[in-house]
Design a protein around this nucleic acid. Structure first.
Lengths: 219, 219
DNA sequence: GTCTATAAATAGATAGAC
DNA sequence: GTCTATCTATTTATAGAC
């Protein structure tokens, strides 16, 4: 009778690999590529530096792996929203909601996106870049659906994309700065994202609707 | 008869200091704080590293000096826009225009802002942070002016701020990525900022106007 | 103010044992 | 797969001459 092909160590290899990825995602998001120390990743993941190189080849390889995965999950989620069965108005509202929810669920993503923006996308490979191009076409199809449904007028999907993505990125990533502004007593900026999402949905829908007179609340 | 207190070298001290600042601004914007090498700054400014430490004490001191100055100029410019003599509608349009123009005139600023966002504002001192709090009150006063003029309804200055600043930051900093998307043939995203500004102005004004029926073009 | 030279610490990465 | 030990190149920063 044959023994199992491999004996499992206390912690399975996959788990260690996943642990490295999890720790690295946090660190890269918090400190950026240049600011992250491989030594620190190894220490926090409780593995040796050499294991990290064994799995990912280099610090850069690890970084690219992470950002590719994260962008992939993000674009998949937004694609689902846009391709669901619902009215265009409903889906625009859900789109805004999904942006905010995804950034809340995966708070490292907006930070990585901001860093890539600042770096001119220098760590994004062609495939990752392709995933990032789906947002505008998805919004375009939503606008066209709304036009067919008779509720949307002419609108530019590019402006819409930059408006929704830009403001959500900004609001999400700005949270620590708002917190400090509060602590310093300079102002009382809001910390909750829900009211912001609600406002943004209304602004988006109002900018899209054909006949402003027919505007009605979405909530 | 007394000789001049100091002889001027071929290049005056101030010029060297300014040169260091100029080079450092570019480098910090392009590579971030952690990614910037003091050695590189010295080489590009054609001075010695030691001179940089003589003037600014440390790499961090230099960075803080720059971001403080840049934020200061930015907030001053936006304050001027908001406090000019004009209608609220006109000033909202100018506000959007000024955001875009300033980011175009000083392309390092949006990059620094994105990096600070990602870093949780860790390199922003209290005074710099205070300057950053003026945007929302300025927009609030613009909204109130518009209400007094009978053209604006209820609106949230915070959402407005995040929408305008966020989307302009995003569009501006995104230019290199759009360029690559073009080169790869994935899409033909626009490179010009003018149409984006125009759209954003309209969206902003439409979201602010009291009675959508009275909407009229601003151009 | 400006430089040369260098200290002292740390970086990313690899060799090789197990 | 995982580790210890280590190499080599950089990095920030300073001392001290001019």
């Amino acid at each position: 009778m044959r023994a199992p092909a491999r004996q499992r160590p206390r912690q399975t290899p996959i788990a260690k690999r996943q642990l490295i990825l999890r720790v690295a995602r946090e660190e890269f998001a918090a400190r950026g590529f240049a600011g992250t120390r491989v030594e620190t990743l190894a220490r926090k993941a409780r593995v040796n530096k050499a294991l990290l190189y064994y799995y990912f080849g280099s610090k850069l390889g690890l970084y690219k792996h992470i950002i590719h995965d994260d962008v992939d999950r993000f674009s998949s989620r937004m694609r689902e929203v846009a391709e669901a069965a619902a009215t265009a108005e409903e889906k625009i509202a859900r789109w805004v909601e999904a942006l905010a929810t995804h950034f809340t669920d995966e708070p490292t993503l907006p930070l990585m996106m901001l860093r890539e923006l600042a770096d001119g996308g220098s760590h994004l490979d062609a495939e990752t870049l392709r995933e990032l191009t789906i947002f505008v076409p998805l919004l375009r199809s939503l606008i066209e659906q709304g036009q067919r449904e008779g509720v949307f007028g002419q609108a530019d999907p590019i402006t819409l994309h930059f408006m929704l993505m830009g403001s959500t990125l900004f609001f999400t990533a700005n949270a620590p700065i708002r917190r400090r502004i509060r602590q310093l007593g300079y102002a009382q900026p809001p910390m909750e994202i829900a009211p912001f999402v609600n406002h943004l949905q209304h602004v988006a829908l109002r900018s899209l609707r054909k006949d402003p007179d027919h505007a009605h609340s979405i909530d």
